[in-house]
């Protein structure tokens, strides 16, 4: 459907845990500026696939390419350095720290001049200002006070902080693992809008979700995992939700149900 080089591509990924085969030769392509959803039943290999792509797990075999060049991630930091930011299902925010501190956690910026280089002072004002900008850019104007502790925020607002952190530092790919699983209707919509915003900046997103309506609302393409293998890639236009679920559960296959083109 397109001839551009994928930003991120995987070929023949295999990962076994003892006798259990987590991934059995999976291919995946992520193109610039798209939202690629990954769906699959429990144990289909969604998590393992994502862990391989984000460096949390090293695949036994297969190849991962970033912008066409082969990469080997041995730990999450490697993937992050390469520009792949992940928002984990367990909200990876420190509740007692404020919004700005969370946004820059582990990447604090120092003040210019000797205050920063000698005294190692961090640039609190600057980080607060840029945190505010990062959140406003994603359409979350409701969080005005960057020195507010994250624990005083709602679940959706916390998720917004986590997504904003990924969007602010991810230069190549953003991976969101079940970002709406713990959220209410309105908060989920807020997060889906953020995903939309990230895509409109040209940054591709990988979205893992159980929620079919959310997937069909925001995804450009949908990668279906089944029993450790890729069961095919569909789009919200080519297939309906029941068809996607049928492929996912093995009730039908992509060859039997090719969908509309």
């Amino acid at each position: 459907m397109t001839t551009t080089t994928p930003v991120l591509s995987a070929r023949g990924l295999v990962k076994t845990y003892g006798k259990v085969v987590g991934l059995d030769g999976v291919d995946l392509d992520l193109f610039p500026g798209e939202v690629l959803a990954i769906i699959g039943d429990n144990g289909a290999g969604k998590s393992t696939l994502i862990k391989c792509l984000t460096g949390a797990v090293e695949p036994d075999a297969g190849e991962i390419r970033l912008d066409g060049a082969p990469v080997h991630f041995r730990r999450p930091q490697d993937a992050r350095k390469a520009g792949i930011e992940t928002v984990y299902q367990t909200l990876a925010v420190a509740p007692a720290l404020d919004i700005a501190a969370n946004l820059y956690l582990g990447r604090e910026r120092h003040r210019p001049g000797p205050l920063g280089s000698v005294l190692r002072m961090i640039d609190k004002k600057g980080m607060r200002r840029d945190a505010e900008k990062a959140l406003t850019d994603l359409g979350i104007g409701t969080l005005q006070n960057m020195s507010q502790a994250v624990e005083t925020l709602s679940g959706g607002q916390r998720q917004a902080v986590a997504v904003a952190r990924a969007a602010a530092f991810g230069s190549k790919v953003i991976v969101l693992d079940e970002p709406t699983a713990a959220l209410g209707v309105r908060e989920s919509q807020q997060v889906l809008r953020m995903i939309d915003q990230v895509r409109s900046r040209g940054l591709p997103v990988i979205l893992i979700s159980h929620n079919m309506p959310h997937v069909f609302e925001v995804a450009d393409r949908i990668h279906i995992q089944r029993l450790g293998r890729g069961a095919g890639v569909i789009t919200p236009r080519s297939h309906t939700m029941p068809e996607a679920v049928a492929i996912m559960t093995g009730a039908t296959t992509l060859t039997e149900t090719p969908g509309q083109t």
Binding site: P76, P95, L105, E108, I122
Partner: peptide
């Protein structure tokens, strides 16, 4: 940054680890 990290580790060890 060290001070921030001390707070973050005590606040939520796992979140601190995931933040690098």
């Amino acid at each position: 940054a060290w001070g921030r990290h001390v707070y973050a580790v005590g606040d939520d060890k796992e979140a601190a680890r995931l933040a690098g």
